[in-house]
């Protein structure tokens, strides 16, 4: 099937719900630590870690690991590319939602 130029295209790396949740939380802050992301997304340590690795590999987040009073601390921030792609992804989702809700006659 041929895709039209104005068809919304979804970013596969971002579209996974847990990853989209992580990126959206990060888009509203400068950086957040692992515990905060766990609390806001409800993901287990292992799953959050796995998703963060994928996002880091994709260049969407920067992860900084430090020791605070001898305890490991993981701080995560969106990269410029991650911020831009997350915003674009939400725009695409909003566009798709608007089209789906529009009456059939108004659809392109």
């Amino acid at each position: 099937m041929e895709m039209r130029d104005d068809e919304p295209a979804l970013d596969r790396l971002i579209h996974e719900p847990a990853r989209l949740a992580i990126l959206t939380v990060l888009s509203s802050v400068e950086s957040a630590d692992f515990v905060f992301l766990q609390r806001t997304t409800g993901l287990t340590k292992g799953n959050l870690s796995s998703h963060l690795s994928k996002l880091e590999d994709g260049g969407l987040v920067a992860i900084e690991k430090t020791f605070v009073r001898r305890k490991p601390n993981t701080s995560v921030a969106l990269t410029a590319e991650g911020r831009e792609r997350t915003a674009r992804h939400w725009d695409q989702l909003d566009l798709m939602r608007a089209r789906a809700q529009a009456p059939a006659d108004d659809r392109p």
């Binding site: 847990a18 609390r39 806001t40 409800g42 993901l43 796995s50």
Partner: peptide, 17 residues
Amino acid sequence: TFRSYRDLDFGNNHGDA
């Protein structure tokens, strides 16, 4: 507020998608 985030349920799959 934090309790309400639990209801969002993003699924605890391993992010293989």
